[in-house]
Simulated assay, not measured.
Amino acid sequence: MRIWSLHPRHLDRAGLVACWRETLLAQAVLADRTKGYRNHPQLERFRATADPLGAIGAYLSGVAAEADARGYRFDASRILRPIAPGTGRIPVTRGQLDYEWRHLGAKLERRSPPDAERWSRDAPGPHPLFTVVPGDVEAWERP
């Protein structure tokens, strides 16, 4: 499961679809609708908020907004608690964002050279739910 801290605009088509699907799974875990992935480290930052379902809903809303901007049809009715992505921001470290940026670049090189070219001209920005703070790779990341 990869719930990117990066802004969804950085993801290629495959990455955006995978992010949507994996975050819907994360939402099911947080809503106690599935038994799998309960201890997945990516969920720690959502569980640490006052409203985990609202936080994951805000994340999904940001992904759905990017999909809409690209003309994709993600079913936003699947978001249990759709909240504006800038609401109740979650901190993410600069080190985490940089780590994910390199990880994404390697993925794009393998599966999507045109997107890798676009990636090489861009700079990493966070998903609207996150605010960047100084620090190394997050403790929940399993590199």
Rank of each mutant, 00 (worst) to 15 (best):
1 M>H: 02
2 R>I: 10
2 R>A: 02
3 I>P: 08
3 I>D: 06
8 P>Q: 10
8 P>A: 05
10 H>V: 11
12 D>E: 14
13 R>Y: 15
13 R>T: 09
16 L>E: 06
16 L>D: 03
16 L>W: 14
17 V>M: 07
18 A>Q: 06
19 C>H: 09
19 C>P: 00
20 W>T: 05
21 R>I: 01
23 T>A: 08
25 L>K: 10
26 A>H: 04
27 Q>E: 11
32 D>W: 01
33 R>H: 12
34 T>M: 07
34 T>A: 08
35 K>C: 08
36 G>W: 03
38 R>L: 06
38 R>Q: 11
39 N>R: 13
39 N>P: 04
40 H>K: 05
43 L>K: 06
46 F>I: 02
46 F>P: 09
48 A>G: 07
49 T>A: 05
50 A>G: 00
51 D>R: 01
51 D>L: 00
52 P>V: 06
54 G>N: 02
54 G>S: 03
55 A>S: 08
56 I>F: 01
59 Y>G: 02
59 Y>H: 09
63 V>Y: 02
63 V>P: 00
64 A>P: 13
64 A>F: 04
65 A>D: 13
66 E>F: 14
66 E>W: 09
67 A>G: 15
68 D>R: 15
70 R>G: 03
71 G>T: 05
72 Y>L: 15
73 R>M: 11
73 R>E: 10
74 F>M: 04
74 F>W: 08
74 F>Y: 05
75 D>G: 12
78 R>E: 14
78 R>L: 13
78 R>P: 06
80 L>D: 10
81 R>W: 09
85 P>M: 08
86 G>D: 14
86 G>N: 14
87 T>H: 10
87 T>P: 03
88 G>E: 07
89 R>P: 07
91 P>H: 03
92 V>W: 14
96 Q>R: 05
99 Y>H: 14
101 W>T: 01
102 R>H: 13
104 L>P: 02
104 L>S: 10
107 K>T: 13
109 E>G: 08
111 R>K: 14
111 R>V: 09
112 S>K: 13
112 S>D: 15
114 P>Y: 10
115 D>P: 08
117 E>Y: 14
118 R>W: 12
121 R>G: 08
122 D>G: 11
123 A>E: 12
125 G>I: 07
127 H>A: 02
128 P>T: 07
129 L>Y: 04
129 L>N: 01
130 F>G: 00
131 T>V: 12
132 V>T: 04
136 D>H: 11
137 V>Q: 11
140 W>R: 15
141 E>P: 00
141 E>L: 12
142 R>I: 14
143 P>Y: 12
143 P>N: 12
143 P>K: 09
